[in-house]
Design a protein around this nucleic acid. Structure first.
Lengths: 224, 224
DNA sequence: CATATAGTTTTGAGCGGTCAAAAACAAGAA
DNA sequence: TTCTTGTTTTTGACCGCTCAAAACTATATG
């Protein structure tokens, strides 16, 4: 059973990439996969076929690649390790939520089942990591119900930030300094389609304008 | 600067292997290096030359290999990571001292400087790991004064176990169940050259006979 | 429909790490 | 000194992962 860290990274990348596809689209194009891994398209093609041979992915020439349920399961396990490690680094080791991603990126391939279950236990079987990303269960399954973002949530109603869909450090720091971290309660004051902006206010009544690009990366649920 | 996990493992193996050489011997033979890594002698030869080219080792054909000071430093850093991780797993994560070696073997190549220094701090800058092995400092330097073993320490005097020179799980469990772990106070009641044995007694006055092989793996210092 | 363009696959190659087996060597025995 | 034995080095090969560049679709455009 195929499972080098390289393979794990491809599985993760395919899983993640598939979540950014326009609806109806099932297969992730090679170019996208390659770009997300910082690799040549030819390399991605080769690997896609390897994964297909191993039963972890379905590969259609000139169309793209998608994970099989088995591949999805493995990807889930990698994500589980990654996210539990991130949360562990923040909660137990005292790191900032914006500085644990890279470390987790390495540890996720190396941490044993024993250790990861110990971590899970120590953290009280958490459901999400510091960014609000759901933590897959020990079978690699991810339970995730659709959520509103700042672009789709009701205007004028208080909402709680639940998830930040971008691991970029600068963005995370921006989110933190503007008190938009998961758990914060905010409110969308208005949206301006043509200005491409969303105005939000926090508890301190300070207003802040976000581009739709950024706004779409913040998931929320109704407060209460 | 060369530093894959493979290289790190070779550095560690050369360092460790050199500590088991009969005095006067400076170079570790290829056969021994290969055996300790579970690798073919030819492979070890190739790598020895690579390390020499990188300035990490000194390689003399048909004689063996030894670390340069630079190689020694890197080996020390690997050992530092390994041992801090082991101690962390025992003290913070609640694992048994006999079950952390393999995990550390993987983590040692992957854990960042930031994390390892955080661990070091959290543990209060410890000097030894759960087996009593010294923890190199952040420059990779190992401070280690020569110690007695059960074969060389004074007879009849109470001594404290300071270090167990064998990571084998069965041996560690034997040590634990017989209360010979680092920190325990014991006494050598006698040695019998021809029977190849050493008799020790613990606090509970229970006596125990060890073969010289095992006795040589337990380092001690005078109690008090 | 023909063609240009963007995306994809193939091919040939290289690097790191490994092995098996053949060749070379060191050192002691005859 | 010559031979024998055990170790070491060399050679040729392979696997996993990668790239550059050439060959090849698929699709949109004119």
């Amino acid at each position: 059973m195929l499972a080098s860290s390289t393979v794990e990274n491809y599985l993760k990348a395919i899983h993640m990439g598939a979540n950014g596809l326009r609806p109806g689209q099932r297969l992730l194009p090679m170019g996208q996969l390659a770009a997300s891994l910082g690799v040549t398209p030819g390399t991605a093609t080769t690997m896609a076929k390897t994964l297909a041979d191993a039963g972890l992915a379905e590969y259609e020439p000139y169309a793209g690649v998608a994970l099989t349920s088995q591949g999805e399961r493995l990807a889930g396990l990698v994500l589980r390790r990654h996210r539990l490690v991130e949360l562990f680094l923040v909660r137990v080791m005292g790191f900032g939520w914006d500085e644990v991603h890279d470390e987790a990126e390495h540890l996720e391939h190396v941490v044993s089942d024993r250790l990861i279950e110990r971590i899970d236990e120590m953290l009280g079987h958490p459901e999400v990591d510091p960014h609000g990303d759901p933590i897959p269960n020990a079978d690699g399954a991810i339970v995730t119900q659709p959520q509103d973002t700042l672009l789709t949530c009701p205007v004028g109603q208080p909402v709680v930030v639940t998830r930040v869909l971008d691991q970029n450090r600068a963005f995370l720091q921006f989110v933190e300094t503007n008190q938009l971290k998961p758990g914060e309660t905010i409110r969308v004051e208005g949206r301006d389609e043509s200005a491409d902006s969303v105005v939000v206010s926090g508890s301190s009544d300070r207003r802040l304008a976000l581009g739709t690009r950024a706004a779409s990366k913040l998931q929320v649920r109704a407060a209460g």
